[in-house]
């Protein structure tokens, strides 16, 4: 099996998984108490509007027909009408996707890289105070309650020392000023992203560090490490060229497996820092009983996680020839 068929296979799996998820959502909606369409209808709507929505969703027709309409609407990116915003769901969500991806991917990638780097050091200096310090720090940051960590960061760095903004993604004055160049705007976003990024980073890097440390210790006992040492390689090269590429593999796997966990954290962080992403939109939609918006946000997040999973798998296949050349 080469890389192409591998990617193709995984992509088909993603499409199937996604299909299962959206079908489940459809049937759960029918199973939930009350009329299904009541979730799409707001008390402020006029009778005409209600009739229109019922017709659009085919609610007067058979459930199978409704299902087909549901799928068709999703394909057309028509997620329905958000009562809270009073606009189409897609219009609410579309410019939030990038914000979520920005925060999510940077924090996952940076924490994995730092975890691998520090885990390597911890394994290399095992049973020293440095190792103990890194291990304890990882245990603590990895199990800290994320929203609380966010609140602490806001309190300390945002409020007490006024180093970073308390919330949001940009300063309106800067973005409205036509004079401001791209760099200025980018720096402004980074300034806003610092604390949410930091809290996600702190939560994640410890897990990767601990995993990398164990994986590295296991790898160092492998026979090919002995071979490398026998060949007269420098210790540095043994670690970097032979141990690292093997020891990092389980970490990459775990990045994939923990993506769902990471996106949970992403939604919490977005909420705490008022970061305008899909996760926060989902949380708010649920508190506003805005079901169409909640459903769309959830489906989008599911897509993001599924695709990220494929990317991780491709990366893994790229790093491990045993997968690439089956």
């Amino acid at each position: 099996m080469n890389l192409k068929t591998f990617i193709l296979k995984r992509s088909i799996q993603v499409v199937i998984s996604f299909y299962v998820i959206l079908s489940l959502l459809f049937f759960l909606l029918r199973l939930s108490p009350g009329d299904p369409y009541s979730k799409y209808i707001d008390s402020d709507m006029t009778q005409q509007e209600i009739e229109l929505i019922k017709k659009q969703m085919g609610l007067d027709k058979h459930i199978f027909y409704q299902y087909l309409i549901y799928i068709r609407n999703l394909i057309k990116m028509d997620f329905g009408y958000s009562f809270h915003y009073g606009t189409h769901v897609w219009d609410v969500i579309k410019n939030k996707i990038l914000n979520t991806i920005l925060l999510f991917t940077t924090s996952v990638i940076v924490s994995a890289l730092v975890g691998i780097f520090l885990g390597r050091i911890a394994a290399w200096r095992r049973n020293t105070s440095l190792d103990a310090g890194l291990t304890i720090a990882s245990l603590v940051t990895h199990t800290i309650f994320l929203p609380w960590l966010g609140l602490l960061l806001i309190w300390i760095f945002g409020y007490k020392f006024e180093l970073f903004p308390l919330s949001g993604i940009y300063t309106p004055e800067i973005w409205l000023d036509p004079e401001c160049g791209f760099l200025r705007k980018a720096l402004d976003v980074m300034h806003h992203m610092a604390l949410p990024f930091l809290s996600l980073f702190l939560l994640h890097f410890g897990g990767y560090l601990l995993l990398m440390r164990n994986s590295m210790l296991g790898t160092l006992k492998e026979d090919y490490i002995l071979t490398a040492r026998a060949k007269g390689l420098r210790e540095k090269d043994i670690i970097n060229r032979h141990a690292l590429p093997n020891a990092a593999l389980p970490v990459v796997t775990s990045v994939g497996l923990s993506l769902a966990f990471s996106i949970n954290g992403g939604a919490l962080t977005e909420t705490v820092f008022s970061w305008p992403g899909i996760g926060r939109e989902l949380v708010m939609a649920v508190s506003h009983n805005d079901y169409p918006l909640a459903q769309a946000a959830f489906l989008l997040i599911a897509i993001v996680v599924l695709l990220a999973n494929v990317l991780v798998d491709i990366l893994y296949a790229f790093l491990d020839p045993r997968i690439r050349y089956e």
Binding site: D223, L226, T227, A228, A230, P245, N246, L249, D320, R322
Partner: peptide, 16 residues
């Protein structure tokens, strides 16, 4: 001095 290890099967690095 070089050596052919007992576990020759595993003495090659799988990712190189």
């Amino acid at each position: 001095v070089s050596m052919i290890f007992q576990a020759a099967m595993n003495s090659l690095n799988p990712v190189k």
